[in-house]
């Protein structure tokens, strides 16, 4: 039948029309594969996403609490105590937020490590089919990014939502709404308003998730296919 593979060297064969010389993975197909991976392994995906969800929910609750406290102080027509008390509160908030993010990151690194390890064989197979190392890394980053952003957005809403309910009795509906534009934390001397702080938290959640996937994915991608295929999971 076809004798296009008849003569010529491995890489020097004249290609049929419409076929590119290099190996490609279109974004549309990569996204489709990411979607399938997330849905087929819904349990693991949920665990991965919930790690970041909890971290960001806690962070956004802490941020909301800080903003609401500022609003409450204004409504009570009192100043929020002395200068050093205020900076002590600020320090505690930063500490709480940092811890919550750290816990979230450890959790997501762990679940990403698991999700890459259990797919060694699949990674090896993909490489046999011609996938470049970068395809493997790209697929895991996409997956981690999607899960991280979904988890972060949900976490931000839930965290802030619970705090809104908790504060509605103390500062009223107007106070709760006002909290969104009240300063929630200080970064480098400037006040960050609550809505922006929560938006930033969401972005940070997505980034942390991707960062957590990067190392295990890169490790798996650079394995020789034979070694990846040998692993039994």
């Amino acid at each position: 039948m076809s004798d296009s593979q008849g003569a010529g060297s491995v890489l020097g064969e004249p290609d049929r029309a419409g076929i590119q010389k290099q190996i490609v993975l279109p974004w549309s197909r990569a996204l489709q594969m990411t979607r399938e991976n997330i849905f087929v392994r819904l349990g693991r995906s949920a665990i991965t996403a919930s790690g970041i969800f909890l971290g960001i929910a806690f962070l956004s609750a802490v941020l909301f609490g800080a903003a609401a406290a500022n609003v409450k102080a204004r409504l009570d027509l009192t100043q929020l105590g002395l200068e050093h008390e205020q900076s002590e509160l600020q320090a505690r908030i930063v500490w709480l937020a940092a811890m919550s993010l750290l816990v979230a990151t450890v959790g997501i690194v762990n679940s990403m490590l698991m999700s890459v390890t259990e797919r060694y064989k699949e990674i090896g197979t993909m490489k046999c089919l011609g996938a470049l190392d970068s395809f493997i890394v790209r697929l895991f980053i996409l997956e981690a990014g999607v899960l991280g952003i979904l988890g972060s957005v949900a976490g931000a809403f839930v965290g802030a939502g619970i705090m809104m309910l908790a504060y509605i009795g103390r500062i009223g509906r107007g106070g709760v709404l006002e909290s969104w534009t009240a300063p929630a934390l200080q970064l480098g001397g400037t006040d960050i308003r609550l809505w922006l702080a929560i938006l930033l938290a969401t972005v940070v959640g997505g980034m942390l998730s991707i960062a957590a996937a990067l190392y295990p994915a890169w490790q798996a991608a650079k394995m020789p296919p034979a070694a990846a295929l040998r692993s039994e999971f």
């Binding site: 419409g18 290099q22 190996i23 490609v24 089919l129 011609g130």
Partner: peptide
């Protein structure tokens, strides 16, 4: 999948 890698259209 290998055809996608090879650059064939869907």
């Amino acid at each position: 999948l290998p055809m996608v890698f090879a650059g064939l259209t869907t």
